[in-house]
């Protein structure tokens, strides 16, 4: 695999980096959608995240890298095996690329062609969703993906389980997957129904000020000239971020959310007129993850303020033709409901 640009070396793009960190701390937040200009480093950030993630324990030989400590989410095979007999090892958290043009059979899994042809046997060959279990599934150009595939992915991501009914097979397996989608809105939009199934949504802009742009180009150039040396230079920073993620995961359960904060989150959603309760839930979860990342014991207004745009901007019942970004509306509402 080619060398990966270090996460810490990415200049700016703070909102996107924060959103990815939140997703790494609490997968329940529900995925990240990043829309923005060409050449602004969307894919770079996602690929860099993969290198940053701490490793996890998984059952040896399991196709779905089940967590031996969590009996509720084991796959059929692992469940059938007595708990004491499950061997486990450390593996990297999977970050699986879903390439455009992937066929449905490879995404959900399908009949094992080799065995069907050679031995006439019917057996299930797991697809990308199985490989991405407990990890991330990265879809570049999510807005160009075929609609039925997007539907399917979002459904699986929401239920945490992949149900395959095809080729005469009937299989279900755990697929707890965090979806990360990126795209360029100029090339087509995502259906509004799908937008709010992503937990967080960030707008990525190319930095406009010259010093930042120079810094981006300088680092990228340094990376390309000497990928390994550059990686070593940033390894310490990356390690720090990794430790932050690990510490935040440990703390996450202890972070308290006061009724007052809940009320404020609800008030914010009401004033923006977001549909359903998903907005409040995501807002709360993301704020809690931020508090955990910051090392705070409870959620306060500052955390809500930081995550509100990403958690809510794609949930506004907006006139789809309204150009004035929904981010602006969220910011206005935040200023009203959560005065600094």
């Amino acid at each position: 695999m080619p060398a990966v640009f270090p996460f810490s070396a990415i200049v700016g793009q703070d909102e996107m980096k924060l959103a990815l960190m939140i997703a790494a701390v609490d997968p329940k937040v529900g995925g990240v959608l990043a829309f923005g200009d060409r050449g602004s480093g969307k894919s770079t950030a996602v690929r860099a995240l993969a290198a940053l993630l701490p490793s996890m324990r998984a059952v040896v030989g399991c196709k779905y890298q089940c967590d031996p400590d969590d009996s509720a989410t084991l796959c059929g095979e692992c469940r059938a095996c007595p708990a004491a007999k499950l061997k486990s090892h450390q593996v990297a958290v999977p970050v699986i690329d879903l390439p455009l043009g992937a066929t449905e059979d490879r995404v959900v899994g399908a009949l094992d062609l080799e065995r069907a042809l050679a031995r006439g046997e019917k057996s299930f060959e797991p697809g990308l969703l199985a490989r991405a279990n407990r990890g991330f599934l990265y879809i570049d150009e999510v807005n160009l993906l075929e609609d039925h595939l997007v539907d399917l992915l979002l459904d699986v991501a929401a239920s945490g389980e992949n149900v395959v009914e095809r080729d005469g097979l009937s299989v279900r397996h755990p697929a707890r997957v965090v979806l990360v989608g990126t795209g360029n809105p100029e090339e087509g939009e995502l259906r509004p129904q799908l937008l709010d199934r992503f937990g967080l949504s960030v707008d990525v802009r190319t930095p406009a000020d010259l010093p930042t742009r120079i810094e981006v180009v300088k680092r990228r150039d340094a990376f390309e000239t000497d990928p390994i040396g550059f990686g070593a230079q940033w390894a310490k920073q990356d390690l720090k971020s990794r430790k932050r993620i690990l510490a935040a995961r440990d703390r996450l359960g202890q972070v308290t959310v006061s009724d007052k904060s809940l009320a404020k989150a609800a008030q914010l959603c009401v004033s923006l007129g977001t549909d359903g309760l998903r907005g409040e839930l995501t807002l709360m979860r993301a704020a809690r993850a931020v508090a955990a990342l910051e090392g705070d014991k409870s959620v306060d207004d500052s955390h809500l303020r930081r995550v509100a745009p990403a958690a809510l901007r794609h949930r506004l019942r907006r006139n789809p033709l309204d150009d004035s970004g929904s981010g602006v509306r969220v910011e206005r509402a935040v200023a009203e409901c959560l005065p600094a």
């Binding site: 695999m1 080619p2 066929t103 059979d105 490879r106 995404v107 697809g127």
Partner: peptide, 12 residues
């Protein structure tokens, strides 16, 4: 990516 990722027709 400087590589191609194939996920189709039962190939990976």
């Amino acid at each position: 990516m400087r590589e191609i990722v194939i996920e189709r027709d039962g190939l990976s």
